[in-house]
Structures are given as structure tokens and as C-alpha cells.
Nucleic acid binder design. Structure first.
Lengths: 218, 218
DNA sequence: AACTATGGATAAGA
DNA sequence: TCTTATCCATAGTT
């Protein structure tokens, strides 16, 4: 059957959308495509609902690769806070939150974040020692791990976090702190500085104040 | 003009949906109707996204009459907790954790360790995100909106080895922390439930396959 | 609320 | 990616 479209072109037999079953998409790349499309659609719907009905909405999405996306009107923090504390939160708690948010946007943040990372590193080291002691008490030793493509590719298949895994975790943290995590602070600062989207006065419907996780420090 | 529909019925001339402008609805009752329809639609979209792509999503909505609706998979608290840990990796919180650990109680120590691991995990995810963004920025150079319809749309850039390694690392940590994260989520949930504002009741919560709504929030 | 026609979201294919 | 054809969400009406 040949279908003539409004504009006179001949339509191709059968390309286009088809119905899909709602179940997990196994193919990674098409899953990624679907995720991107539907996340955009979801946020658009949310922004429309905000505008149409004057509602406050917060959406947090962790992508299949654990990237964080968020939507918030008037802001994620405001909505979450209201959710956690209730509609009529006590003033002092609101002030606390405000202070925390302010410190997040200050120019001392890079230092603070590095300190935070260092503290986390220290805490993880302590956790490792703890775990070592406990594991020694419980079982004394454990078997070798299977070699995989990357040295940290290990499966946890027991209730207990094994010492070897925690040790590797420590190495991973060291490595990460050396190569990437520290750098993240600079990147964050840069992202803040040349952020192309203002938080106020966005001309379009869509600039209500949502976006990837990084702009929450604005 | 008489139109015969697929099912053989004769369509009525022209009733049905029309396009609406996205702006605040003044009429209260139609606003309420629109809110109900669109909120249901939003949650449905979210649940589909959860299933299709295996994502974690939390949605909080305050209705025009201040009812609260929420959607969460696997649970609202779990997702919010992960989000907040990413956001609030600030010295204040770090010090609290450090103090907890120094107190020496093994029970507290366990909790602190788990939370420290969780925080490191989220920090790492953030670093990964920043690294991805940086790679995309270097490559995309000229402008964020060049070929993206919306500024928040994801830029996918898989070309950097560093990013891929970080992704693998993330997966490894996720596996490592599978159970610990759950425990931390539960702890956080209990903390949330301790929220000292009984007049506000319990927020309405929707999981996947969310059910009918009844609210005490008004 | 239930229905129906439309507009917009989106799965596939290019 | 971009396009296209479908399917679904939903505005308006009963």
C-alpha cells in the first residue's frame, strides 16, 4: 500500500515507532538511548506540571551508569527539605540548611572538599583495619580472587566484606584521589565559573532550575 | 466530513484534545484536574524509566493545595540519601562522622564505616561525572547548546579511557558496597522517620506499580 | 469520572 | 545523530 503524505512525498512502508514492552532493556546502547530520551521527557513533563499548576517538584535520577540527574523547582534542596522536615519546618533548621548550602557555594569549597576526601580516606583506612581485625577473628584467612580485566573487578558474594576487597578499595581510593577526585574540585569550580545557565531569569520554560548534579553548588 | 475510525465507529466531528499553552492555569478546579492527570502520567513515566533502564528515581511533588505526593524506586529515602550524601560531603558532616568513629564504640564504628564507604562511593561517582563533563567540554568547545535542544541534555562521550576506567571502578565499588549501602539507607530512613513534626503525617509514597492515592497532607 | 480525538513523546531505522 | 510513523497521554466534553 502506497501512502501519499500531506506534503506529497511517498511515505516509506514501515519505519517509525512501535510499541514496546515495559521490561528491562538488555542492550546497553539502546538502553542508554532510551534513558536519555525518557529522562528528557520526564523532566519536560515535570516542568510543565510546575508551570501549569504552580507545584513544587523535585526529581532525582541515577542513570544506568550512575550519573546523577536532578530536577527541582524552586530548587531540589528546598523541596527535599520540605519533604523531610514537613511543610512547616522550624526556622532554625531552615537556617541550618541555608548555611550548609552557602558553604557549598563559597570559594573555600575546593579546600573543604579536599579535606573531606582526606577524611574519608582516613576513615576508610580505619574501616579497613577494623575489618581486618574482625575477619582475623572470624576466619583467619580467605582464598585468592579470580583475575579479571581490571584488578578491582571483584564480585562480592558473601555477607562479609572481605579484607582483600577493602584493601583494593583503599588502593582504588588512593588512585582516584591522585588522578581524578582531587581534580574534580577544580572542575567543579570551573563548572561554576563558566556555567552558561543562570539560576535566575531564564527566559524559557525549561530553565526552572534543574540539571545535572554539578550545578547544585550554584 | 464523516470519518470512519479503525474500529468502524463514526467519529464525532471535533471534540477531544486541543493544544494548550504552558502557563499557569488560573481556574482552580481545572488546575486540580490537570494536576491529577499529569501527576499520574509523570509517575507512570518514571516507573517505566525505572524498569526499562534499571535506574533509581525519586520524585517529590507538592500539589497546588499542598498535598504531598512522592515516587521512589527502590525507595524515596534511599535515593534522597544517596543524593544528599553527594551534596553534603561538607566538613560539618565529615567531622560528625570522625567524632563518631573516635568514640570507640564498635557499634558506632560500624555505622560510621558504612557511611564513610557510602560517601566515598558518591564522591567517586561525582568525580566520574565531572571527568565526563570535562571531556565533553573539551571536545564540544564552542557552546553547550550547539546541537542540544535543552541545556541539560546529556553529552555522551565514551572516548576517554580515564572515564571508562572510572566507570568500571564505580561498578566495582557498587558491588563492593551493595549491602553496606542498604544498611546505611535503612539507618538514614530511621533518622528520617524520627522527624519531630507529627502534625504533617506520613507523606504519600509510590513505588513501582504505585497504587491509588489517599492523603493526609492538606 | 469516562470517553475521544489530538498533540506530543518516542522506538526504530537511516 | 535525525526522521518518521506510531502510540500514548491528556484537553475538552458528556
Amino acid at each position: 500500500m502506497v501512502v501519499i503524505k500531506r506534503n506529497g512525498r511517498v511515505a516509506k512502508p514501515s519505519t517509525g515507532r512501535k510499541k514496546i514492552e515495559i521490561k528491562k532493556i538488555d542492550n546497553k546502547s539502546s538502553q542508554q538511548v532510551t534513558f536519555s530520551k525518557r529522562r528528557a521527557g520526564l523532566f519536560k513533563k515535570a516542568s510543565e506540571l510546575c508551570i501549569l499548576c504552580g507545584t513544587q517538584i523535585a526529581i532525582i535520577v541515577f542513570s544506568p551508569v550512575h550519573k546523577i540527574f536532578s530536577f527541582g523547582h524552586p530548587s531540589i534542596e528546598a523541596v527535599i527539605n520540605r519533604y523531610l522536615q514537613g511543610v512547616n519546618a522550624e526556622p532554625h533548621q531552615q537556617n541550618m540548611l541555608a548555611q550548609e548550602m552557602e558553604s557549598g557555594s563559597s570559594n573555600t569549597m575546593d579546600t573543604a572538599s579536599i579535606q573531606a576526601l582526606n577524611q574519608q580516606y582516613d576513615m576508610t583506612m580505619k574501616a579497613l583495619e577494623m575489618e581486618k581485625k574482625r575477619a582475623a577473628d572470624i576466619r583467619g584467612e580467605s582464598g585468592m580472587m579470580t583475575r579479571l580485566e581490571f584488578w578491582w573487578e571483584e564480585r562480592i558474594d558473601e555477607e562479609t566484606i572481605e579484607v582483600e576487597e577493602l584493601e583494593q578499595y583503599i588502593f582504588a581510593i588512593e588512585d582516584l584521589m591522585g588522578r581524578a577526585a582531587m581534580k574534580a574540585d577544580d572542575l567543579m569550580m570551573r563548572a561554576i565559573l563558566d556555567c552558561p545557565f543562570p539560576t535566575n531569569g531564564v527566559p524559557q520554560n525549561y530553565g526552572i532550575g534543574f540539571g545535572p548534579q554539578s550545578n547544585q553548588f550554584l
